[in-house]
Protein backbone atom coordinates (compact mmCIF):
# COMPACT_ATOMS: atom_id res chain seq x y z
CA UNK A 1 0.00 0.00 0.00
CA UNK A 2 1.36 3.36 -0.95
CA UNK A 3 1.79 6.15 1.50
CA UNK A 4 -0.15 9.33 0.79
CA UNK A 5 0.92 11.38 3.79
CA UNK A 6 3.10 10.87 6.83
CA UNK A 7 3.96 12.84 9.95
CA UNK A 8 6.95 11.72 12.02
CA UNK A 9 7.52 12.97 15.54
CA UNK A 10 5.56 16.03 14.57
CA UNK A 11 4.75 18.94 16.86
CA UNK A 12 2.82 22.11 16.10
CA UNK A 13 2.62 25.35 18.04
CA UNK A 14 0.61 28.53 17.69
CA UNK A 15 2.93 31.09 19.22
CA UNK A 16 4.17 29.69 22.52
CA UNK A 17 1.33 27.20 22.96
CA UNK A 18 1.96 23.68 21.70
CA UNK A 19 -1.17 22.27 20.07
CA UNK A 20 0.06 18.69 19.82
CA UNK A 21 3.42 16.92 19.83
CA UNK A 22 5.02 13.53 19.31
CA UNK A 23 2.55 12.71 16.55
CA UNK A 24 3.26 9.85 14.13
CA UNK A 25 0.56 9.41 11.53
CA UNK A 26 0.40 7.72 8.15
CA UNK A 27 -2.37 7.96 5.58
CA UNK A 28 -2.36 5.20 2.99
CA UNK A 29 -3.89 5.36 -0.47
CA UNK A 30 -7.64 4.94 -0.73
CA UNK A 31 -8.48 4.90 2.96
CA UNK A 32 -11.21 6.83 4.70
CA UNK A 33 -9.88 8.26 7.95
CA UNK A 34 -11.94 10.04 10.59
CA UNK A 35 -10.18 12.82 12.52
CA UNK A 36 -11.81 13.19 15.92
CA UNK A 37 -11.39 14.97 19.20
CA UNK A 38 -12.75 17.84 21.30
CA UNK A 39 -12.80 21.52 20.34
CA UNK A 40 -9.36 23.06 20.17
CA UNK A 41 -7.57 19.69 20.07
CA UNK A 42 -5.86 20.56 16.81
CA UNK A 43 -7.89 18.69 14.20
CA UNK A 44 -8.08 21.63 11.81
CA UNK A 45 -4.44 22.33 12.53
CA UNK A 46 -3.62 18.79 11.38
CA UNK A 47 -5.26 19.45 8.01
CA UNK A 48 -3.47 22.80 7.76
CA UNK A 49 -0.18 20.99 8.29
CA UNK A 50 -0.98 18.60 5.44
CA UNK A 51 -1.83 21.59 3.23
CA UNK A 52 1.41 23.34 4.09
CA UNK A 53 -0.49 26.29 5.60
CA UNK A 54 0.93 25.57 9.04
CA UNK A 55 4.56 24.68 9.66
CA UNK A 56 5.82 22.07 12.11
CA UNK A 57 7.86 23.03 15.13
CA UNK A 58 9.41 19.59 15.39
CA UNK A 59 9.51 16.47 13.27
CA UNK A 60 8.85 16.05 9.60
CA UNK A 61 5.94 15.74 7.22
CA UNK A 62 5.51 14.55 3.68
CA UNK A 63 2.41 14.69 1.53
CA UNK A 64 2.08 12.89 -1.81
CA UNK A 65 5.82 12.31 -1.83
CA UNK A 66 6.87 15.91 -1.23
CA UNK A 67 7.03 18.44 1.60
CA UNK A 68 3.57 19.80 2.48
CA UNK A 69 2.33 22.52 0.14
CA UNK A 70 4.16 21.35 -2.97
CA UNK A 71 1.42 19.08 -4.25
CA UNK A 72 -1.37 21.48 -3.45
CA UNK A 73 -3.08 20.99 -6.83
CA UNK A 74 -3.63 17.30 -6.04
CA UNK A 75 -5.37 17.99 -2.73
CA UNK A 76 -9.03 18.91 -2.37
CA UNK A 77 -9.86 20.89 0.76
CA UNK A 78 -13.08 21.93 2.44
CA UNK A 79 -12.37 24.52 5.15
CA UNK A 80 -14.31 24.44 8.40
CA UNK A 81 -17.72 26.08 8.82
CA UNK A 82 -18.30 28.09 5.74
CA UNK A 83 -21.74 29.22 4.93
CA UNK A 84 -23.18 31.77 2.58
CA UNK A 85 -26.03 34.03 3.60
CA UNK A 86 -29.06 34.66 1.46
CA UNK A 87 -27.67 37.83 -0.11
CA UNK A 88 -24.85 36.01 -1.90
CA UNK A 89 -26.08 36.00 -5.48
CA UNK A 90 -23.61 33.50 -6.90
CA UNK A 91 -24.79 30.20 -8.30
CA UNK A 92 -23.57 26.97 -6.75
CA UNK A 93 -22.02 25.86 -10.03
CA UNK A 94 -19.95 29.04 -10.30
CA UNK A 95 -18.56 28.29 -6.86
CA UNK A 96 -17.80 24.70 -7.86
CA UNK A 97 -16.00 26.02 -10.94
CA UNK A 98 -13.68 28.05 -8.69
CA UNK A 99 -12.38 24.77 -7.30
CA UNK A 100 -11.25 23.92 -10.81
CA UNK A 101 -9.68 27.17 -12.03
CA UNK A 102 -10.25 29.83 -9.36
CA UNK A 103 -6.54 30.38 -8.85
CA UNK A 104 -5.79 31.02 -12.52
CA UNK A 105 -5.07 34.62 -13.47
CA UNK A 106 -7.25 36.29 -16.02
CA UNK A 107 -10.96 36.68 -16.51
CA UNK A 108 -13.17 34.30 -18.40
CA UNK A 109 -14.22 36.35 -21.41
CA UNK A 110 -17.66 35.97 -22.89
CA UNK A 111 -17.55 34.19 -26.21
CA UNK A 112 -14.52 32.00 -25.56
CA UNK A 113 -15.77 28.56 -26.35
CA UNK A 114 -12.50 26.70 -26.60
CA UNK A 115 -11.93 23.02 -25.99
CA UNK A 116 -10.59 23.79 -22.53
CA UNK A 117 -13.81 25.60 -21.69
CA UNK A 118 -15.89 22.63 -22.83
CA UNK A 119 -13.73 20.24 -20.83
CA UNK A 120 -14.08 22.44 -17.75
CA UNK A 121 -17.85 22.54 -18.13
CA UNK A 122 -18.01 18.76 -18.49
CA UNK A 123 -15.88 18.30 -15.39
CA UNK A 124 -18.07 20.65 -13.36
CA UNK A 125 -21.23 18.85 -14.50
CA UNK A 126 -19.62 15.54 -13.56
CA UNK A 127 -18.68 16.53 -9.98
CA UNK A 128 -22.07 18.15 -9.44
CA UNK A 129 -23.73 14.91 -10.51
CA UNK A 130 -21.31 12.91 -8.37
CA UNK A 131 -22.34 14.67 -5.16
CA UNK A 132 -26.01 14.69 -6.15
CA UNK A 133 -26.26 18.47 -6.37
CA UNK A 134 -27.81 18.67 -9.84
CA UNK A 135 -31.17 19.86 -8.59
CA UNK A 136 -29.87 22.97 -6.84
CA UNK A 137 -26.53 23.77 -8.52
CA UNK A 138 -28.09 26.54 -10.59
CA UNK A 139 -29.60 28.30 -7.60
CA UNK A 140 -27.75 31.07 -5.76
CA UNK A 141 -25.67 29.38 -3.07
CA UNK A 142 -27.13 31.64 -0.37
CA UNK A 143 -30.57 30.21 -1.08
CA UNK A 144 -29.44 26.59 -0.64
CA UNK A 145 -29.90 24.82 2.68
CA UNK A 146 -26.91 23.98 4.85
CA UNK A 147 -26.81 20.41 3.56
CA UNK A 148 -27.10 21.54 -0.07
CA UNK A 149 -24.31 24.07 0.43
CA UNK A 150 -22.15 21.35 1.97
CA UNK A 151 -22.63 19.09 -1.04
CA UNK A 152 -21.71 21.90 -3.43
CA UNK A 153 -18.61 22.67 -1.39
CA UNK A 154 -17.58 19.02 -1.51
CA UNK A 155 -18.03 19.19 -5.28
CA UNK A 156 -15.76 22.27 -5.27
CA UNK A 157 -13.10 20.34 -3.36
CA UNK A 158 -13.43 17.47 -5.85
CA UNK A 159 -13.26 19.60 -8.98
CA UNK A 160 -9.56 19.07 -9.70
CA UNK A 161 -9.84 15.29 -9.26
CA UNK A 162 -7.67 15.26 -6.14
CA UNK A 163 -5.78 12.24 -4.83
CA UNK A 164 -6.22 13.43 -1.25
CA UNK A 165 -9.41 14.99 0.07
CA UNK A 166 -9.35 16.92 3.35
CA UNK A 167 -12.79 17.71 4.73
CA UNK A 168 -13.06 19.86 7.85
CA UNK A 169 -16.39 19.15 9.57
CA UNK A 170 -18.52 18.58 6.48
CA UNK A 171 -21.22 17.05 8.68
CA UNK A 172 -21.51 20.13 10.84
CA UNK A 173 -25.02 21.63 10.69
CA UNK A 174 -26.51 18.62 8.91
CA UNK A 175 -29.39 16.59 10.26
CA UNK A 176 -28.89 12.87 10.91
CA UNK A 177 -30.14 11.56 7.53
CA UNK A 178 -27.93 14.07 5.74
CA UNK A 179 -24.94 13.17 7.93
CA UNK A 180 -25.43 9.56 6.88
CA UNK A 181 -25.84 10.35 3.20
CA UNK A 182 -22.81 12.66 3.06
CA UNK A 183 -20.76 9.99 4.91
CA UNK A 184 -21.91 7.39 2.41
CA UNK A 185 -21.06 9.73 -0.47
CA UNK A 186 -17.54 10.26 0.86
CA UNK A 187 -17.07 6.54 1.36
CA UNK A 188 -18.14 5.94 -2.23
CA UNK A 189 -15.55 8.48 -3.45
CA UNK A 190 -12.95 6.53 -1.51
CA UNK A 191 -13.96 3.12 -2.79
CA UNK A 192 -14.77 3.95 -6.40
CA UNK A 193 -12.29 6.68 -7.23
CA UNK A 194 -9.53 5.58 -4.87
CA UNK A 195 -9.33 9.00 -3.22
CA UNK A 196 -7.74 9.12 0.22
CA UNK A 197 -10.03 11.03 2.58
CA UNK A 198 -9.36 12.63 5.96
CA UNK A 199 -12.63 13.86 7.42
CA UNK A 200 -12.82 15.91 10.61
CA UNK A 201 -15.89 15.34 12.76
CA UNK A 202 -17.04 15.98 16.29
CA UNK A 203 -19.20 12.97 16.73
CA UNK A 204 -17.90 9.62 15.60
CA UNK A 205 -21.23 7.78 15.76
CA UNK A 206 -22.80 8.72 12.42
CA UNK A 207 -19.50 7.95 10.69
CA UNK A 208 -18.40 4.84 12.48
CA UNK A 209 -19.66 2.28 10.01
CA UNK A 210 -18.00 4.05 7.05
CA UNK A 211 -14.49 4.64 8.41
CA UNK A 212 -11.41 2.54 7.77
CA UNK A 213 -9.43 4.24 10.48
CA UNK A 214 -9.76 6.90 13.15
CA UNK A 215 -7.27 9.40 14.49
CA UNK A 216 -8.13 10.98 17.83
CA UNK A 217 -6.57 14.23 18.92
CA UNK A 218 -6.89 15.16 22.59
CA UNK A 219 -4.80 16.80 25.27
CA UNK A 220 -1.80 17.40 23.02
CA UNK A 221 -1.54 13.84 21.76
CA UNK A 222 -2.86 11.74 18.91
CA UNK A 223 -4.05 8.17 18.85
CA UNK A 224 -4.61 6.30 15.62
CA UNK A 225 -5.85 2.89 14.57
CA UNK A 226 -8.83 1.00 13.23
CA UNK A 227 -12.13 1.79 14.94
CA UNK A 228 -12.05 -1.60 16.66
CA UNK A 229 -8.57 -0.89 18.10
CA UNK A 230 -9.10 2.68 19.19
CA UNK A 231 -12.75 2.90 20.06
CA UNK A 232 -12.72 1.12 23.38
CA UNK A 233 -13.81 2.41 26.76
CA UNK A 234 -10.25 2.20 28.15
CA UNK A 235 -8.43 3.93 25.31
CA UNK A 236 -10.88 6.78 24.88
CA UNK A 237 -11.22 7.37 28.61
CA UNK A 238 -7.44 7.51 28.94
CA UNK A 239 -7.16 9.89 26.00
CA UNK A 240 -9.90 12.26 27.12
CA UNK A 241 -9.11 11.89 30.81
CA UNK A 242 -12.83 11.50 31.40
CA UNK A 243 -15.36 8.73 31.53
CA UNK A 244 -16.12 7.72 27.98
CA UNK A 245 -18.05 4.57 27.40
CA UNK A 246 -18.18 2.47 24.26
CA UNK A 247 -21.27 0.35 23.91
CA UNK A 248 -21.93 -2.45 21.45
CA UNK A 249 -25.41 -2.40 20.03
CA UNK A 250 -27.35 -5.55 19.36
CA UNK A 251 -26.48 -5.25 15.62
CA UNK A 252 -22.78 -5.23 16.46
CA UNK A 253 -22.28 -1.48 15.85
CA UNK A 254 -20.30 0.58 18.32
CA UNK A 255 -21.73 3.64 20.00
CA UNK A 256 -19.60 6.13 21.90
CA UNK A 257 -21.31 7.88 24.78
CA UNK A 258 -20.15 10.55 27.19
CA UNK A 259 -17.61 12.20 24.88
CA UNK A 260 -16.79 15.49 26.56
CA UNK A 261 -17.68 17.09 23.29
CA UNK A 262 -20.91 15.78 21.91
CA UNK A 263 -22.40 18.06 19.30
CA UNK A 264 -25.70 18.18 21.10
CA UNK A 265 -24.09 19.99 24.02
CA UNK A 266 -21.67 22.11 22.14
CA UNK A 267 -22.98 23.32 18.90
CA UNK A 268 -26.31 24.83 19.69
CA UNK A 269 -24.93 28.34 19.43
CA UNK A 270 -23.49 28.46 15.96
CA UNK A 271 -26.44 27.37 13.88
Amino acid sequence: MSLVAALRGAAVAHGAATVWSGVDIELTAGEFVGILGPNGAGKSTFLEVLLGLQGLREGSASVLGAPPGERRERIGYLPQRRSFDASVRVRGRDLVALGLDGTRWGTPMPGTFGRRRAAARARIDAVIAEVGAGAFANRPIGECSGGEQQRLLIAQALARSPDLLLLDEPLDSLDLPNQASVSALVQRLCREDGITVALVAHDVNPLLSYLDRVIYFARGRALSGTPAEVITTEKLSALYGAGVEVLRRSDGRLVVVGQPDMPAHHHGHDH
Binding site: Y77, P79, V88, L98, G99, T103, W105, P108
Partner: peptide
Protein backbone atom coordinates in the same frame (compact mmCIF):
# COMPACT_ATOMS: atom_id res chain seq x y z
CA UNK B 1 -10.97 35.29 -11.56
CA UNK B 2 -8.82 34.99 -8.41
CA UNK B 3 -10.33 38.26 -7.15
CA UNK B 4 -13.78 36.77 -7.61
CA UNK B 5 -12.65 33.63 -5.77
CA UNK B 6 -11.21 35.66 -2.89
CA UNK B 7 -14.34 37.83 -2.78
CA UNK B 8 -16.96 35.09 -2.48
CA UNK B 9 -14.98 32.41 -0.69
CA UNK B 10 -11.97 33.94 1.06
CA UNK B 11 -11.13 30.92 3.21
CA UNK B 12 -11.04 28.44 0.36
CA UNK B 13 -9.18 30.86 -1.88
CA UNK B 14 -6.50 31.44 0.74
CA UNK B 15 -6.06 27.71 1.28
CA UNK B 16 -5.87 27.27 -2.48
Amino acid sequence: RPLFYASVDEQAARAD
